[in-house]
Design a protein around this nucleic acid. Structure first.
Lengths: 247, 247
DNA sequence: AACACAAAGTCTTCTATAAGAGTTATAAGA
DNA sequence: TCTTATAACTCTTATAGAAGACTTTGTGTT
């Protein structure tokens, strides 16, 4: 046996290139293929799967389009991770008033560990007894308080996170998830509503009581669809807007 | 000369398949290739452009991914237009409270013709003297007043629209734009903010004065990026939510 | 001997072409 | 109605050269 052959595309599942795609997806989801080193070359993968190189290529191209892997000519194909290369705005859809996309800064208000609530358990598909870490922070955009954020993380996916000092949290959390806990956020679903400012919003965002604000409820997922983060952002949209491109 | 040969891919512009793509895009934007009949077959296009069939295929595949054309095995490739085939929810991102995607019904309040305002002219890149048609309507979702919509259309793109009776307007306007005026909306950009309900919202949506609502400002564009519609939707989000998938 | 730099070689992805087998839809004919 | 033919797209494989990135080797200098 030339290699450990864990995942062969099953026969009769549809197009070959899609079977290859699924096999690769499973491998990546299982955590083989560290983000620091390239996947096996197209040739190698083709040999492993017993298909032509072009078929592997088609699978990889499709995955690259979905931002699951990133391909560098001459270097190889890598699992698409968070880092300097990646588009930082992919998961940040707030636009400053001047129409420019800017990254916010963050100040952590609190970080606590506790039992999950019922709605949280539902959103993250956790058991009612599960424990979570709750992070609360204020984010500034263009030196103006703009976002009040509540982040809920399953404790079992992020062991030891609750013990960190709140000053140790970086601005870009997804980078942290990836580097410290090998959790890679690949996609997210957001539900957006309008709400009236409550006491918390008044104190931390400086809004008037009852002022309209944008509520963004995000569930971030890994490659295989496992929800790993629930994030509720409350935004003062007097100087910014959420944007969405319908292509 | 075998055909009218308007657009040849220029030499040295980058990958061949992309030159073909651009050439086809120009053709479609110019309004050749009616939506009712297929584009020339891959073979024909390959012959026209002097490239291999696989190269044309790659260009078309890319365009199909971007929802610019739609491919039917055995029938041909068509300009992707609005109609029964097309995903009706592509341009409607509101989610009912139960999590289901439903289409709203519409009741037109008014339809008037007037001079463009300054902000409208900016958004639609019109001259300050241009005339527009303004449509105002209320949309119900699950038999509940949910959206107050203001639609601004450049008069020169939609000649004679202002003369229509307001009862003649269909629920799905993009279908009308396409069938009556040969204007195909291919993409849209939305900016979303939270606002307080004003007098209009109170009367038409039954909201309390100052209640928070979701404001969606959409600019719809044709293939070549020409803005053709400005639409401002004011939504009561007590029973629905805007959703966005970050893939 | 140690270092700097250029050339050569190798690995990888990217582009282009070609060809054959399979699937789907439409139209013509029995 | 059923069958057949045809046209079109789909899938897979194969090959070959171009282009980018990295490593090794060779050369010359210090």
């Amino acid at each position: 046996m030339p290699e450990t052959w864990v995942d062969r595309p099953r026969s009769g599942d549809g197009p070959l290139y899609r079977q290859v795609r699924e096999a690769l997806l499973r491998e990546i989801a299982q955590g083989r293929h560290p983000v620091t080193e390239p996947l096996p070359s197209e040739q190698k993968l083709a040999a492993r799967f017993g298909v032509a190189q072009g078929t592997v290529r088609r699978a990889l191209d499709e995955m690259a389009r979905e931002n699951l892997v990133i391909r560098h000519q001459g270097r190889g194909t890598f699992v698409h991770a968070h880092g300097p290369d990646r588009d930082r705005f992919h998961f940040f859809h707030l636009l400053a008033a001047d129409g420019e996309r800017r990254l916010p800064t963050s100040r952590v208000l609190s970080m606590t560990q506790r039992r999950v609530t019922q709605t949280e358990a539902l959103a993250l598909s956790l058991s009612p007894q599960a424990r979570v870490v709750e992070i609360k922070r204020v984010r500034d955009l263009m030196a103006r308080r703009a976002i009040l954020e509540l982040i809920i993380l399953p404790d079992d996916l992020f062991p030891g996170l609750g013990d960190l000092n709140k000053t140790q949290l970086p601005n870009t959390l997804y980078q942290l998830y990836q580097d410290r806990f090998a959790v890679i956020v690949h996609r997210a679903v957001e539900k957006i509503t309008a709400e009236a400012a409550g006491p918390d919003d008044v104190t931390h965002l400086g809004l008037d009581r009852g002022a309209p604000l944008l509520r963004i409820e995000r569930i971030a997922q890994t490659l295989d669809g496992t929800p790993v983060e629930l994030r509720i952002s409350r935004c003062d949209t007097t100087h910014l807007a959420y944007f969405s491109d319908l292509l």
